[in-house]
Amino acid sequence: MSMDSNSSEITSMVKETLEKLESIDFRQKTDLNGYRNRFTERGWKAFLRFREGLSTSSKTSILRAELPSISRLEFNDNLDQCNVTIELNLRGSKNGERVEVTREIRLEMINEETWKIDRYESGLEREGCRESPVINSVFNGHPRVVKACPQKITLAMLVRNEADRYLPAVLQQAAQYVDEAVILDDASTDKTVEVCRELLQGIPSFIHVNQSPGFGNEINLRQQLWELAVQSSAEWILCLDADEVFEDRVVSEIRTLVNQPHIDVIGFRLYDFWDMEHYREDEFWNAHLRYAPFLVRYQSKFPYQWLETPLHCGRFPQNVTLLPSAVSNLRLKHFGWATTEDRQIKYTRYKEADPDGKYGILKQYESILDPKPNLIKWRENE
């Protein structure tokens, strides 16, 4: 194998590995085992020592690594070892500043197709690294806006006929940590609006009531809710549905997520409950294995773009993930599937609204009525 092909292979592997392993939210447990096979035994121990040293620092939190360049890549005479110097931009909070760091790495060739990291050391560190070119381009040269702490959290929620379902529990919890609420009622025929007014007493709230239902075209409602939240001078927009509730510790932990200057999008894992104590996990029901944005800092100069579909359009503009992002280990419980009646209603709705699977997955629609789904017991604050 030539030096050029070795260089290309090493560059690709190092970039993918380091951007993943150096992106750390110290408030959550990060699974490293999937990357264990990219290290020799000695290299893995060195990396764990390095990681342990970082995780004990109280000054560092929510970091996302971006690897813009490899400044040095030198092979030995036998082309079976390579010393690499990496320059990383860590986009997150450390004493309120972004940081630029270097890592000194040595790789060893295991065979002609495999390289592994054999040494891992910290290098130089500089405060105030430059903005990502991606961020500069999407803002068209305008600066990001970050107001002084404490940051305001605005709950944005779309509701329709939720009075006797999960809405009371959702609002009782949210009232403990949000600063204001924007509610869009889609022509409810029950006491949903009254429940919202009662449970949001003492919190600045705006409740807009549509005179006729519009849920046949979800994108219109999602965009309407977004505009109502923006008009309220929102800083952070937390978009929850009326059947979604966080773990209890959200009350004490959410301020840590928003009172920082560098991250604009926070992702959470959503667990689809099939009864009040179990969530579902299988081929089609695994949203809790990935992070989705639920909490977004509004940036007035950002060119938001929506997925213009009448179904499954998303609760935020689809390009918000271009903004500086991080994840939280706070988990969201979704009870919209938790009863047989709810599942039958949603099954019928999706089959009628999307009979050809244009906006969703037909096999997932069919799986809604699976008589023996794989269910896992929920453990609070795990």
Rank of each mutant, 00 (worst) to 15 (best):
A169E: 15
R315F: 09
E41Y: 08
V170S: 00
E194C: 05
Y359G: 07
P261H: 11
S325K: 06
S8V: 14
F268T: 06
G360V: 14
F39C: 03
A148T: 10
G336N: 15
E100Y: 15
Q172V: 14
Y35C: 02
L311W: 05
T321L: 08
A163P: 00
R42F: 06
L79Q: 02
S61K: 04
E16L: 05
I376D: 09
R106T: 13
Y359N: 02
E341F: 03
V138S: 08
N161K: 05
V134M: 13
Y177T: 08
V209P: 11
N329Q: 13
V84D: 00
E19G: 00
K372R: 15
V182W: 08
H288A: 10
E352M: 09
S137V: 00
A181D: 04
V193P: 06
N111S: 10
W236Q: 01
Q305G: 08
Y291V: 04
R91G: 10
I207K: 05
R249P: 02
E19I: 01
D179C: 02
I203S: 06
G214L: 06
E277F: 08
L79N: 12
I361N: 08
E218W: 14
T309C: 12
I10D: 08
I254W: 06
S61V: 07
I376Q: 06
E218V: 10
Q223C: 04
M157G: 06
V99W: 05
L155P: 00
L228C: 02
A175K: 07
A163L: 04
S61Y: 03
R297C: 01
D25Q: 07
P310L: 07
P355H: 07
T340Q: 12
W306P: 00
R42A: 13
I361Q: 09
S205D: 11
D241Y: 13
A46E: 13
E198D: 07
K301L: 10
S12C: 14
P133R: 11
D179W: 01
R349I: 09
E283G: 14
F273D: 02
G360K: 14
F50S: 05
H288I: 10
V265H: 09
I368W: 15
N286Y: 10
N6G: 13
K29R: 09
G336F: 06
T60F: 14
E247Y: 10
Y304S: 02
K346A: 02
